[in-house]
Design a protein around this nucleic acid. Sequence first.
DNA 1: GCCGAATGTTTCGCACAGCAAATTTCAGCC
DNA 2: GGCTGAAATTTGCTGTGCGAAACATTCGGC
Lengths: 160, 160
Amino acid sequence: MKTPLPTDLKGDLDAIVEAFLYLYTESRRLTKEIAARHGLTGPQLTVVKMLEALGELPLSRLSEKIRAQNSTVTGIVDRMEREGLVTRARSAADRRVVHIRLTEKGAALAREVQVEPMDIFREALEALTAEEARTLLRTLRKVARRVEMLVEAATEAEAK
Amino acid sequence: MKTPLPTDLKGDLDAIVEAFLYLYTESRRLTKEIAARHGLTGPQLTVVKMLEALGELPLSRLSEKIRAQNSTVTGIVDRMEREGLVTRARSAADRRVVHIRLTEKGAALAREVQVEPMDIFREALEALTAEEARTLLRTLRKVARRVEMLVEAATEAEAK
DNA sequence: GCCGAATGTTTCGCACAGCAAATTTCAGCC
DNA sequence: GGCTGAAATTTGCTGTGCGAAACATTCGGC
């Protein structure tokens, strides 16, 4: 710690966590609302946008991207396929893998929903000055690096 | 804008969103993992810690705190009551309201799980200087206010 | 003191998310 | 060919989450 000032740093940290949680849950709630307006659920909107950005993807790749298990994603894709939003196609190169791709209907929907997840958050960020944004980014990155370290330490401790 | 530098502000904002999401999902994943280690789910751990900090709470108050509907919280409390972690008690003052309180078992569990939700995030925040923390807080608050405004604007537009 | 509105909670029905374990199909290797 | 491991799916289960409706209670007004 460079500046040990123990003033009411603790209070500040609590407040940061609170603000952070507010921002996240609110952004997420809105995303869900937008998704619902188009007959989608939150995760489904995420998938649609992911596929729009990256083109077709093996299911496993998709699972990694949205941080879920294959079996979970299988279910999500099932429901989306049922709605005619995506198609499955076995890979010619490796017939174990299944490529997920947007249908025309899915692609149209993706274009229609111009809002990306977390968009309201992004929009709110525009109230910041460039200076503030840069500082915020630097700070968040610092915190992120620290989280990474803590995570590593934790997983190592587990592999005791 | 004090510093109009429109350099690659957009890129910065994207990076902020990314870092933000990383921090959230990672913190949440860890919280869930810790909760699971003690036979709890994520929301249940949140409730336990909330009650530990605030004492008994009306169910509605609890719902607000964890940002969920009453009907959702009823379910969560049901399961926790089944496990003997909390009790319900009708208020004497207003017999409509139900106070949720930790049982001895619940309180013991709360003491045992010293980690609060988002704790790893909080821990990572300690890598910041007091100065940085204060700036971060100020910036997040600003963004939060902006989100609030956007939310209000959106809900008003809906009530057209 | 009664009535209608408001408040707090629960019930019900529903759909999705999410996981683990077991299974199937396939690729690559010896 | 037989083995091992990877990719995806199936199955079975639990929890989350919501909205609508039901219910009890309280409160405000008259």
